[in-house]
């Protein structure tokens, strides 16, 4: 029930920001469409703590602020190696241990790895994640576990 209310609120805000109309006819159409979407979501059985992660609302902004800094630094590295050419890169494929237990945290971690240029997550196998990296140094950075610790702090 809690997740249904949060989903409806999020959809209502999304509708309002996309249209900007406040006439009576438009608002009733909005209410109809929101109810329809929530009904479909219930039919699909996807309304739970994974699709509407409200418990992360206050933790996510701090994590993403840190992630944006990392993304900019990684971008500068990749741009440098585009100019230095093919001799300077050392493509590596490696498995990395992860310490998260919930599926949502694993997905956030894999998504963060892919969002950072220079590293791409190829697949998750149980408690390990297969990462392709442009440079060997980025694998070493990931193995130090800074990002892993921050994601683990998100989930509890």
């Amino acid at each position: 029930m809690k997740h249904t209310i949060h989903l409806s609120l999020a959809l209502a805000l999304f509708w309002l920001f996309n249209s900007g109309h406040t006439g009576l006819l438009m608002l009733s159409l909005a209410a109809g469409s929101i109810i329809f979407v929530v009904y479909i979501a219930h039919k699909m059985d996807v309304v739970d703590h994974e699709s509407t992660p409200v418990h992360l609302t206050f933790k996510l902004p701090g994590y993403y602020a840190w992630l944006i800094k990392e993304v900019i630094l990684a971008n500068i590295t990749v741009l440098k190696h585009i100019w230095l050419g093919n001799e300077s890169i050392s493509p590596t494929l490696s498995r990395i241990d992860i310490s998260q237990t919930t599926v949502l945290a694993k997905v956030i971690y894999a998504n963060s790895i892919t969002l950072t240029p220079g590293t791409i997550s190829v697949g998750i196998e149980g408690n390990r994640i297969l990462v392709h990296a442009l440079l060997q140094d980025s694998i070493e950075d990931l193995k130090k576990g800074e990002m892993d610790r921050r994601v683990t702090r998100l989930e509890n």
Binding site: N75, P117, G118, I120, L134
Partner: peptide, 10 residues
């Protein structure tokens, strides 16, 4: 893919 990732994020 890594080079395309630069275009996608930054």
């Amino acid at each position: 893919m890594h080079a395309a990732g630069v275009g996608d994020t930054l």
